[in-house]
Amino acid sequence: MSVPPTRRPDWPEIPFPAWRETCRHLHLMTQVVGKYRLARSPWLNHSWHATLYVTARGLATGPVPDGARTLEIEFDCLDHLLLLRADDGGTRRLPLGPGSLAAFHQAFRTALAELGADPRFDGRPNELPAPVRFAEDQEQRPYDRDAVERFWRALLAIDRVFRRFRSGFLGKVSPAHLFWGSFDLAVTRFSGRRAPLHPGGIPALPDAVTREAYSHEVASAGFWPGGGGLEEPAFYAYAYPAPAGFAEAAVAPAEACFHKDLGEFLLPYEAVRRAADPEAALLAFLQSTYAAAADLGGWDRAALDCDLGEPRRPRPVE
């Protein structure tokens, strides 16, 4: 049973073609901020030190160490500002809007310097074909405020489900976080075993980074707003290494299918948004694709799996 979209304000329409160029602009701006966090944060397994997190107003870095001080940077998707906050009370507010990435990059570096932070970081995009250095990207891009807000509200709803799914695992599991390189919100579970050396080859990303990210066996799921050959927002799920039979596994809901070129299961965002219970539909996709990866891959599910977490209820210990 489908539900009229007006009854799902927390699962808004986000058709990719309608905001393609705004999405690219936002993606590149998150890369600029993400490169600053990457340059200042100690390396954490699988590049977890570089990601952004969904917040009650947008996307944020969390605390970033910068010498003797700490900064936090947030994309405010309600007031459409980039907020920079320092631990000495200093703040800067940069408007988010149409324009060039070069101008945004310069304004961001100036704001960092004014706060006493180090404005030096790598000035090249990652994971994009034919990347243009931030300082040289003079292309004028649009900024659709309504589309950005709807995208963020979709992320809020998705993040809630990802966090709930994350709670049902006792093994190593990532936070729900946004990778600004590929611009996807993701959550990843680990079997605990080493994986074969990844072949690398991701555009504008050092193979050493890719190989460290996939150093251990994973079952990963996430969400893309579109792009990279996908003309619609979609959820994905994959295993590395993919066990024999994974592509043929039966998963839920019925709208999910295996994309041979990508080597991943895909589920259109629209199928989730229009479901009678979107959270249940998405959770079914996460659970069934994980089960396929873990069962076919021989994971020790008796030791790794647990019931989904509940507020105020500790795990029982027997």
Rank of each mutant, 00 (worst) to 15 (best):
S2N: 11
S2F: 06
P4C: 12
W11E: 13
P12E: 01
R20F: 06
H25D: 03
V33R: 08
L38Q: 14
S41A: 11
L44G: 15
A50F: 05
V54L: 10
T55F: 12
R57T: 14
L59R: 02
A60Y: 03
G62L: 03
P63E: 05
P65N: 04
R69L: 10
R69I: 08
E72G: 11
D76A: 06
D79V: 13
R85G: 11
D87R: 05
G90E: 07
R92G: 07
L96F: 06
G97H: 06
L101G: 02
L112N: 04
L112P: 11
L112G: 05
A113D: 15
A113P: 15
E114F: 10
G116K: 12
A117L: 12
D118S: 10
P125W: 01
V132D: 01
F151Q: 11
L156Y: 00
D159E: 01
D159Y: 08
V161M: 06
R166D: 02
G168N: 06
G168Q: 10
F169M: 08
L170E: 11
G171D: 07
S174H: 09
L178D: 04
L178M: 08
G181V: 03
R194Y: 02
P196Y: 04
L197C: 01
H198N: 07
P206M: 07
D207G: 05
V209A: 09
T210H: 15
A213K: 14
Y214I: 01
E217M: 06
V218M: 10
F223R: 02
Y240V: 09
A249H: 04
P253E: 01
E255M: 01
A256D: 05
E264P: 11
E264T: 12
E264K: 07
L266T: 05
P268W: 13
Y269N: 09
E270Y: 13
E270N: 08
A284V: 00
Q287K: 08
Q287H: 09
S288L: 03
A292D: 04
A293M: 03
A294P: 14
D295C: 10
D300G: 14
D300N: 14
R301G: 05
L304G: 13
R312T: 14
P316E: 04
